[in-house]
Design a protein around this nucleic acid. Structure first.
Lengths: 344, 344
DNA sequence: ACTCTGGGAGAGAGCGCTCTCAGACCCATC
DNA sequence: GATGGGTCTGAGAGCGCTCTCTCCCAGAGT
């Protein structure tokens, strides 16, 4: 059987007490240098490694932070947003003693994850990619510190700690850019309205448009996929095409559109081109996410860049602070930037 | 502070002993049904969740399996091989009580990972994407069961448990297919020779070529990247081009090439086309991996398919068996198939 | 010579659970 | 009525560590 040496065995080997070995192993200063040498020799001889489980039980700390990812693994791994977040978390944690644990949350058996978290295996947890209808984490915050990536929508999580980009301000940034270009008929293709990203980006567009006296009805919805963006664009064109037999057609043609993510923007541009419209001279387009393909589109896409790695790092730093029992703000907002390319 | 209810508190609440509560919580059969009801009520009232750390310490089990991934996270997440392996592992584990832990192994501080593993946090570990020069896991197998994905190259790991595809047999499969097509001048573009995949695929090609009386010198090396495949192909063409002024040019032009992965095969095909050679009529090409893009190449690539999810599942099942103390074979080989498309 | 101080080491009580062992109790058997 | 055999429950000893408390023993101060 696998059986590792214990503190007690090291103590016997070194001829000191368990407590002294513990002090040496944990780097306490108040130990005689000669004793330190003797103990370290014994540790090396026995190839001793502290049992972290026992240490955790006694000290009520684990030095482990969980990063919870939903089981739909393929999605997560394919998600271009996720990898940099993980990297940011890992980067922020590498200077600390915390070990990072990606916890695959089985969606079929959420209690497995919950019990793991509540069972004292980790000092705190980071939750990303959290859907509105997900109740799994309600109440967990009473058992251990949790930091969400993205504002959690669930009403009972309204006092949760989270780090987010300011989707609303970013959307205003994008829309104001269009206004600054002299555009007046600015539409939007909004994303899913069960996710904060979808809701808040739409709200930001509304604010800017209202402030500029634009038409607040120029909204169509997609689900963040490229094809849904194309369909939404087609609907927008139909609504405002003067030549359209559609009775609902109204007003002047649109001259700009803010699209809630780059995938949908790519679809929208295809449709604009198919209708013989030029981007940006006929219709300016701004996307959101600054996906890797944004710069290779025709024309290169003007879009909002979110510093995902910084978001991950912020989440980690916030969690570490919470674990240490320090005060911290409930919400942290990471600034975004508008990357101006050719499409607007 | 965060402080959860304990067994003792539940016992007091239910008016029974700690041992009885433990029995109920762990589903022991020999408990009076009425007592079970009372205890469960107390558990619910206190919202009791067992402390897994304490349980681990007492029972010497954790019910956690680590899947170790190297820190170069971006690589891992981009790796099209990795996601299905994770999915296979998760699938195999979902029927068990084991929780899966993706452990991000800091390459700068390997002792962090080592201590985590040796410190009793997990019952066993899975290691994928293991490089030849990596010593991190030598000796760890004495502390806990470990299963490698892919044959570990390190000499001291020669008796490790591993699951692998038979790279050598797969390469023979691919090469024999080319021989069966009547090709006689069969070259290969080999991969990195510090990884089993690179070494064994080359060895398999050698065996088949030798058996068929082919030219064993028709080898060029790449590093698995597309550009390296293109460069290797260019070198092969130069060596065998009768019109080449290169004194080293020798023998008839090649009529087939087995490429050690699909990325390099894509590069090779580009070069062949650039030289005015047709695939497969002039040069037949077989790749390896069956990457998602293989079927969309021109022509669609004939390639070796490895069931990555099955590999992950096999690793998990093997590890579970080892943890249970059961006998198991040191090596498990997952069969591969040749997917015949248009390129050969 | 005396106490006082303080650094350095050991003793021992947990942390929350599991698991063996022994005891209590009930029923059947002789 | 005594004995045997089951079933269920409780007591208690760990698991390997941390951490407080106490003790010991210089060396300093008076």
């Amino acid at each position: 059987m696998y059986r590792n040496p214990t503190l007690e065995m090291v103590a016997a080997e070194a001829g000191v007490s368990r407590a002294t070995v513990s002090r040496v192993v944990n780097g306490s200063t108040s130990v005689n240098p000669e004793v330190i040498t003797v103990v370290n020799a014994a540790v090396a001889r026995l190839n001793y490694v502290p049992n972290r489980v026992a240490r955790s039980l006694a000290s009520r700390r684990t030095d482990v932070i969980a990063l919870i990812v939903p089981e739909s693994t393929s999605t997560v791994f394919a998600d271009p947003f996720f990898a940099p977040v993980v990297r940011g978390v890992a980067r922020a944690l590498s200077d600390t003693n915390y070990t990072l644990n990606l916890l695959i949350a089985s969606e079929a058996r959420p209690e497995k994850t919950r019990r793991y978290l509540q069972g004292g295996n980790v000092d705190g947890a980071l939750v990303v990619s959290h859907h509105a209808e997900d109740h799994s984490y309600v109440g967990l915050g009473d058992s251990l510190p949790i930091v969400f990536g993205g504002r959690p929508l669930h009403p009972e999580l309204s006092d949760a700690y989270y780090v987010d980009v300011d989707n609303r301000a970013s959307a205003r940034l994008a829309t104001d850019h269009l206004i600054g270009l002299g555009r007046r008929r600015i539409a939007t293709i909004a994303g899913r309205q069960d996710m904060p990203a979808g809701i808040d980006r739409l709200a930001g567009w509304r604010e800017s448009v209202a402030a500029a006296g634009g038409d607040p009805s120029l909204v169509e919805y997609g689900d963040f996929s490229q094809s849904s963006g194309a369909e939404a664009m087609a609907r927008l064109l139909m609504r405002t095409d003067a030549a359209s037999p559609d009775a609902a057609a109204s007003g002047d043609p649109i001259d700009a559109v803010f699209v809630a993510n780059d995938q949908m923007a790519a679809g929208a541009i295809q449709v604009l081109h198919a209708h013989g419209l030029s981007v940006p001279s006929d219709v300016a387009v701004v996307g959101y996410d600054d996906d890797t393909f944004a710069s290779t589109l025709t024309p290169p896409l003007t879009t909002v860049n979110q510093p995902s790695a910084d978001l991950g790092a912020s989440m980690a730093e916030l969690l570490v602070r919470l674990i240490a029992g320090q005060e911290a703000p409930r919400r942290t907002i990471i600034p975004t930037t508008l990357v101006v390319r050719a499409s607007a």
